[in-house]
Simulated assay, not measured.
Amino acid sequence: MKKWLIIILLCALAVIGYRYVYQDHRDIATETSIYKLTASDISNEFAINPMSSENKYLNKTIEVSGSISDKNPQSITIEDKVFCQFSNEIQKTLNTDKIKIKGRFIGYDDLLEQVKLDQCIIID
Protein backbone atom coordinates (compact mmCIF):
# COMPACT_ATOMS: atom_id res chain seq x y z
CA MET A 1 0.00 0.00 0.00
CA LYS A 2 2.85 2.37 0.89
CA LYS A 3 4.55 1.66 -2.42
CA TRP A 4 1.45 2.68 -4.43
CA LEU A 5 1.03 5.87 -2.43
CA ILE A 6 4.62 6.89 -3.18
CA ILE A 7 4.18 6.11 -6.91
CA ILE A 8 0.96 8.17 -7.10
CA LEU A 9 2.61 11.05 -5.22
CA LEU A 10 5.62 11.03 -7.57
CA CYS A 11 3.36 10.99 -10.64
CA ALA A 12 1.36 13.93 -9.28
CA LEU A 13 4.55 15.89 -8.62
CA ALA A 14 5.80 15.11 -12.15
CA VAL A 15 2.55 16.40 -13.70
CA ILE A 16 2.61 19.57 -11.59
CA GLY A 17 6.28 20.16 -12.43
CA TYR A 18 5.68 19.62 -16.15
CA ARG A 19 2.77 22.09 -16.20
CA TYR A 20 4.83 24.66 -14.31
CA VAL A 21 7.84 24.44 -16.63
CA TYR A 22 5.86 24.26 -19.89
CA GLN A 23 3.27 26.99 -19.34
CA ASP A 24 1.35 28.50 -22.26
CA HIS A 25 2.92 31.55 -23.84
CA ARG A 26 1.44 34.89 -22.92
CA ASP A 27 -0.58 36.76 -25.52
CA ILE A 28 0.55 40.36 -25.02
CA ALA A 29 -1.91 41.59 -27.66
CA THR A 30 -4.88 40.63 -25.48
CA GLU A 31 -3.39 41.68 -22.14
CA THR A 32 -4.17 45.03 -20.57
CA SER A 33 -1.19 47.33 -20.15
CA ILE A 34 -0.27 47.91 -16.53
CA TYR A 35 1.75 51.07 -17.25
CA LYS A 36 1.42 53.68 -20.02
CA LEU A 37 4.48 55.89 -20.43
CA THR A 38 6.45 57.97 -22.89
CA ALA A 39 9.94 56.83 -23.86
CA SER A 40 11.42 59.81 -22.01
CA ASP A 41 9.50 59.05 -18.80
CA ILE A 42 10.61 55.44 -18.55
CA SER A 43 14.19 56.33 -19.51
CA ASN A 44 14.33 59.01 -16.78
CA GLU A 45 13.02 56.52 -14.23
CA PHE A 46 15.85 54.11 -15.05
CA ALA A 47 18.42 56.92 -14.95
CA ILE A 48 17.37 57.77 -11.39
CA ASN A 49 17.04 54.27 -9.90
CA PRO A 50 17.64 51.34 -12.27
CA MET A 51 17.24 48.53 -9.71
CA SER A 52 13.86 49.59 -8.34
CA SER A 53 12.59 50.44 -11.84
CA GLU A 54 13.60 47.03 -13.15
CA ASN A 55 11.79 45.31 -10.28
CA LYS A 56 8.72 47.49 -10.92
CA TYR A 57 8.40 46.70 -14.65
CA LEU A 58 9.98 43.24 -15.03
CA ASN A 59 7.76 40.87 -17.03
CA LYS A 60 4.89 43.40 -17.04
CA THR A 61 2.94 44.52 -20.11
CA ILE A 62 3.54 48.22 -20.76
CA GLU A 63 2.69 50.80 -23.43
CA VAL A 64 5.38 53.20 -24.60
CA SER A 65 4.86 56.16 -26.91
CA GLY A 66 7.30 58.39 -28.73
CA SER A 67 8.89 58.94 -32.11
CA ILE A 68 10.77 56.28 -34.08
CA SER A 69 14.54 56.75 -34.18
CA ASP A 70 15.42 53.41 -35.85
CA LYS A 71 13.45 50.72 -37.68
CA ASN A 72 14.42 47.21 -38.77
CA PRO A 73 12.22 44.42 -40.17
CA GLN A 74 11.54 42.98 -36.68
CA SER A 75 12.39 45.84 -34.31
CA ILE A 76 11.88 49.52 -33.64
CA THR A 77 13.80 51.89 -31.41
CA ILE A 78 11.84 54.75 -29.89
CA GLU A 79 13.82 57.95 -29.24
CA ASP A 80 17.02 55.87 -28.85
CA LYS A 81 15.69 54.91 -25.39
CA VAL A 82 13.31 51.98 -25.89
CA PHE A 83 14.12 48.93 -28.03
CA CYS A 84 11.00 47.04 -29.15
CA GLN A 85 11.30 43.56 -30.65
CA PHE A 86 8.39 42.10 -32.63
CA SER A 87 7.58 38.42 -33.05
CA ASN A 88 6.93 38.86 -36.79
CA GLU A 89 8.12 41.28 -39.45
CA ILE A 90 6.53 44.71 -39.32
CA GLN A 91 4.03 44.95 -42.16
CA LYS A 92 2.68 48.47 -41.61
CA THR A 93 4.06 51.68 -43.07
CA LEU A 94 4.94 53.68 -39.99
CA ASN A 95 4.79 57.39 -39.31
CA THR A 96 8.02 58.40 -37.55
CA ASP A 97 6.42 61.35 -35.73
CA LYS A 98 4.43 59.43 -33.13
CA ILE A 99 3.98 55.73 -32.36
CA LYS A 100 2.51 53.75 -29.48
CA ILE A 101 3.74 50.22 -28.79
CA LYS A 102 2.64 47.60 -26.28
CA GLY A 103 5.08 44.92 -25.17
CA ARG A 104 6.54 42.92 -22.31
CA PHE A 105 9.39 44.53 -20.39
CA ILE A 106 12.37 42.15 -20.32
CA GLY A 107 15.15 44.33 -18.98
CA TYR A 108 17.32 47.41 -19.11
CA ASP A 109 20.59 47.56 -21.06
CA ASP A 110 23.05 49.60 -18.97
CA LEU A 111 25.58 49.84 -21.76
CA LEU A 112 23.20 51.27 -24.38
CA GLU A 113 20.93 52.85 -21.75
CA GLN A 114 17.88 51.33 -23.40
CA VAL A 115 14.71 49.74 -22.08
CA LYS A 116 14.06 46.38 -23.78
CA LEU A 117 10.60 45.11 -24.76
CA ASP A 118 9.65 41.91 -26.59
CA GLN A 119 6.46 40.46 -28.10
CA CYS A 120 5.58 44.01 -29.16
CA ILE A 121 2.56 45.13 -31.11
CA ILE A 122 1.76 48.52 -32.65
CA ILE A 123 -1.29 50.24 -31.21
CA ASP A 124 -3.21 52.40 -33.67
Rank of each mutant, 00 (worst) to 15 (best):
M1F: 09
K2R: 06
K2E: 13
K3H: 13
W4E: 12
I8L: 15
I8T: 13
L9K: 15
L9S: 14
L10K: 12
A14E: 04
I16T: 09
I16E: 03
I16N: 04
I16C: 06
G17T: 12
G17M: 08
G17F: 06
G17V: 09
R19A: 12
V21E: 13
V21N: 11
V21T: 06
Y22S: 09
D24W: 11
D24L: 12
I28H: 02
A29I: 07
T30R: 13
T30L: 07
E31H: 06
E31M: 13
T32M: 14
Y35K: 05
T38P: 14
A39S: 10
A39G: 05
S40G: 04
D41P: 05
D41M: 07
I42D: 01
S43V: 09
I48P: 03
N49M: 13
N49L: 13
P50S: 13
M51C: 06
M51K: 03
M51Y: 10
S52L: 08
S53K: 07
S53R: 02
E54F: 12
N55M: 13
K56C: 02
N59E: 06
K60P: 07
T61F: 04
E63L: 02
S67L: 14
S67G: 09
I68W: 00
I68T: 03
I68Q: 03
I68A: 04
S69R: 01
D70Q: 13
D70Y: 12
P73G: 07
S75D: 13
I76E: 00
T77N: 10
T77L: 10
I78T: 08
K81F: 00
K81H: 09
V82I: 09
C84R: 02
C84Y: 00
F86H: 00
S87E: 12
N88M: 15
E89N: 11
E89L: 04
I90H: 01
T96R: 06
T96H: 09
D97N: 11
D97F: 08
D97M: 14
I99C: 01
I99G: 00
I101H: 00
I101F: 01
K102A: 01
R104S: 13
F105P: 01
I106M: 05
D109M: 11
D109A: 08
D110K: 15
D110I: 08
L111K: 11
L112F: 04
E113H: 11
E113C: 04
V115I: 15
K116R: 12
K116I: 10
K116Y: 03
D118T: 11
C120A: 01
I121R: 04
I122M: 04
I123K: 01
I123R: 03
D124N: 15
D124I: 05
